[in-house]
Design a protein around this nucleic acid. Sequence first.
DNA 1: CGCGTGAATGAACGCTTATTTACCCATGAT
DNA 2: ATCATGGGTAAATAAGCGTTCATTCACGCG
Lengths: 207, 207
Amino acid sequence: MTDTGLPVGGSPLQQRLAAAAVELFYRQGAIATSVRQITEACGLTPGALYNHFESKDELLYTVVRDIHLRLESVLTAAVGAVAGDPVAELSAIVRVYVARHSDHRETARVANREFPLLTGAHYDEVVAIRRRLRDTVVDVLLAGQKKQVFDLVGGDDRTAAVLTALPILDMCVHISEWFHEHRPLSHAELEARYVGLALRMAGARTH
Amino acid sequence: MTDTGLPVGGSPLQQRLAAAAVELFYRQGAIATSVRQITEACGLTPGALYNHFESKDELLYTVVRDIHLRLESVLTAAVGAVAGDPVAELSAIVRVYVARHSDHRETARVANREFPLLTGAHYDEVVAIRRRLRDTVVDVLLAGQKKQVFDLVGGDDRTAAVLTALPILDMCVHISEWFHEHRPLSHAELEARYVGLALRMAGARTH
DNA sequence: CGCGTGAATGAACGCTTATTTACCCATGAT
DNA sequence: ATCATGGGTAAATAAGCGTTCATTCACGCG
């Protein structure tokens, strides 16, 4: 199963347009990318886009939402596979995030940088997904704290868990900002190191 | 000494224009902000901007560069004040970063989000500052590793130090993305928790 | 064969953009 | 008193934007 991290729904041409849009959004941002550029990348003229998407905004929404949903689906699968063991759950979360933000950093970066451009219900929907993603980590940390396998900085309340979850996610998400293929580091090794960092941040008991 | 984190050089009107630009760039991004909006915020018409800046691009460059230089100056002062003690140096770095990215998060966010828009020599100059900022952290980690007060994840080479410095900076920098005043947390407490996290990540010996 | 349909086209729309230009007016110096 | 100048304005410019429109083209079905 090859997983490019790109949106998968819709007709073949919708997929090609979405892929071209992601590529361009990644390189120059969504605002600076014109409908002309997107369609030209598919060998079409501007008007053709409107046979497949309602507007440029709806294309952006589709792309950003699908990337988020895809991450969520991969994440819940990975966490579910080791349910009940907070250390394993946190490790799985970090591995998924690192993989997606180094391997598919174009899509990841587009989703994270451009989602604030969405408006109204579209924005709310994506923000809700992001909150669910964050809460997944918070819940794992709280469960680990309760089982005394974690020792969070700043106490054992929810605030402490949030203020540990956010930095963990921040450091993983922003791999996509600096990761370049020429770095002499395999993805597996990067995952291992970040898992180590996250476990330290959570105060995981070393045994 | 009130420090807004805003650019300070230039004539009074240049400062007002720069401050208005930062405010607008923060809320809607530099590309989506028009010269009209910037000058209107100062009670002027668009053409007036060109009496004080060569172009919109040069205004962006000035703003972004000055914010970076200001952070660098504050940072080197804070590190220099505790030179020789890696734990204190790392703590000072994190405190400066947390303070600037929660207290002055408008300027911080503008600098971090918009700097890729710069081109040519302007871009190179800002990237050079950012590299110096990063290397400051790397050097502190390496010094601490050598003195055996740190125990880095992944060994004691420079790669291990870089791969610890980047996550530490990432988590600090991106406070500006989620920090809102209504969070029930004082800046001092946020600093303390982030210092705790960073020391854990560096494997600081607890004594 | 002829028709319906989905999809692409090229041209135009109305609007906004950054920037330039010509002009005007106050201030301060000679 | 005169003049230069810095800094403002309104207006013009050229380009680009997202989007719409009438038209055409190619294809599958009765």
